[in-house]
């Protein structure tokens, strides 16, 4: 058998339906670029930034789910408290935004530790449903506490001047808050990657993910590692809350909205894969922002008004999830059997 025939196994060549789907998508992108270039690019950037926020929430959630086996529903509330905490620091205490950027994630992380030590620690090894219910309860408590403290009306605060400006990139004007969010997201993901794959601490976490009991037999203090991971995961949620709050403000629904989307990101990316969460979050972020523009462009060109589905952006995460799960049930980059 020649090398050429060996290479053309079905796995390596896209099948005809995939080829058609890819070409169709490419055609739509080209049409959109021709009809509305400015809107397309700016929504692409918006989608990537939105994806960065989703990514940070999903990474924390995924870390906690992977190591502790707990579906932390309260993760969204901690994200929300990050945003309200920033409001408290910037608008009410009148301290610089940069103080909020450092102090609020630490504060949110400490709330996370409190949750872990008082409630979740008792639930490890139990039915995951119990953890889900307990954290759902905490989510509701935190949401009501937020309402009691800051009221039910949406709030916002003024970010510092440097984050209210915008920069010109080619013909495109990008708000500096968005660039800043993207930069912080990149730092978080690179930092997390280095921590997990370049340090002994990360090695012990990865070992604990695979076989907790054996890691303890080797002398690794797993309960302490759990608490540290919980702090990290929830502090990152708090940090994304601060960034989101600076960009669009805050309301009581944001926690629930984002935690559900973060679950979708994890499922699509594949549990246990940092890389998977990153790709999936960016993909979903872009899909949410770009799909409406693309559909609008297609209806403009074809005149088929029924092709435009209003609210399609909000549906996209779930459509992407259904599509990915149909083709690859363990997610894009998921490791086989991690949750089995």
């Amino acid at each position: 058998m020649s090398a050429a025939t060996l290479a053309s196994t079905p796995d390596e060549l896209p099948s005809v339906p995939w080829l058609i789907a890819g070409l169709a998508l490419l055609a739509v992108v080209i049409v959109t670029l021709a009809v509305r270039p400015g809107l397309f690019i700016s929504n692409l950037v918006g989608g990537l930034v939105y994806g960065m926020i989703l990514m940070m929430i999903a990474l924390g959630l995924s870390l906690i789910l992977g190591l502790l086996g707990v579906v932390n529903f309260a993760h969204g509330a901690l994200f929300m408290i990050g945003a309200y905490g920033a409001y408290q620091v910037v608008a009410l205490f009148e301290l610089p935004f940069w103080v909020a950027l450092i102090a609020v994630p630490i504060g949110v992380g400490l709330i996370g530790v409190l949750m872990e030590v008082t409630v979740l620690r008792r639930l490890y090894g139990e039915d995951p449903l119990i953890g889900l219910l307990a954290t759902f309860g905490i989510e509701l408590m935190l949401e009501e506490a937020t309402r009691a403290q800051w009221g039910g009306t949406p709030l916002s605060f003024d970010p510092p001047a440097v984050l209210r400006a915008s920069v010109q990139v080619g013909f495109l004007e990008i708000a500096t808050t968005r660039l800043f969010t993207a930069a912080v997201g990149a730092v978080v993901v690179v930092g997390l990657f280095l921590l997990m794959y370049r340090t002994d601490f990360g090695l012990s976490i990865r070992a604990g993910l695979q076989d907790q009991q054996m890691a303890e037999f080797l002398g690794i203090d797993i309960p302490k590692r759990f608490t540290i991971v919980f702090f990290l995961g929830t502090a990152i949620a708090g940090l994304s809350g601060v960034l989101r709050g600076a960009e669009v403000g805050m309301d009581l629904g944001m926690g629930m909205d984002f935690v559900i989307l973060a679950f979708v990101v994890i499922v699509v990316g594949g549990l246990g894969s940092i890389f998977g969460s990153v790709v999936s979050a960016l993909l979903i972020g872009v899909a949410v922002f770009v799909t409406p523009v693309m559909l609008r462009a297609v209806t403009t060109v074809t005149g088929l008004e029924w092709l435009y589905v209003s609210g399609i952006g909000g549906l996209m995460p779930f459509l992407v999830m259904i599509g990915v799960l149909l083709v690859r049930p363990r997610g894009l980059f998921g490791e086989e059997g991690l949750l089995e």
Partner: peptide, 29 residues
């Protein structure tokens, strides 16, 4: 986890290696 620090080590039944760590990482950890 403190028993290991006392100087006890264990080769369990079924080995319980960390399947997705490399040989070098299994030893290093």
């Amino acid at each position: 986890y403190d028993r290991a620090d006392l100087g006890i080590s264990f080769v369990p039944e079924e080995r319980q290696l960390f399947p997705r760590l490399t040989v070098a990482e299994n030893i290093h950890i």
